[in-house]
Amino acid sequence: MKQQRINRRHSGVSLVELLVVMSAATVILTLSTGLIHRIMHAQTKARWLADVERTTLRLSNDVRRDVHLATQATTDKSQLGNGSFLRLQLADGNTLEYRREETTIQRIQLDGSRTIAREEFAFGQEFELEANLEEGRLVVLSVTSRGHRNRNNSDEPSRIADEIPVDLQVVAALGRGGSK
């Protein structure tokens, strides 16, 4: 009889025990949810970074190599059309044009007016672009994310694109790929 009474006393949980367990569970779940969210964000960011860096490196290598092979460069927008910002005249008579789209840069190889090759560099975000010819022999190309620096101070929610901006500056000298 006494044993049964003791067992009955332990057949449930008190309100305090329940509250303690629920509080602990809530804390753990909140932390876990936050962690999972951050891990997913980190994964997306890593993928974005890899894309941007790969594209940037490819563009940098292509521009440097093309300028080295070129004999003449034009960066004056009044002489260029179709969104072009850089035209390179190659020694074999072909022309290379770098054109800007909304979030991409296109490298187009032309034989006269006929397109013979096209390559695209997609950044997935809007960017600012500047191409100059310094001292008649150095081509300077800068690609930076649009408004990235200003957006850092604003209250707008941050996007992955804002956290991993495009930053590239290439300086290349004309005509170094040949005889020199």
């Binding site: 980190a42 890593a46 860096e53 940037t56 150095l138 500056q169 290349a172 000298a173």
Partner: peptide, 27 residues
């Protein structure tokens, strides 16, 4: 992970910068 992301970007920027400076000098 955050440090690694920044480090990778900074390394590429540094490499570009040194290449650009060398390009100016050697031309």
């Amino acid at each position: 992970h955050r440090r690694l992301v920044n480090s990778q970007r900074e390394y590429r920027l540094a490499l570009d910068e040194v290449s650009n400076q060398l390009e100016r000098l050697t031309s």
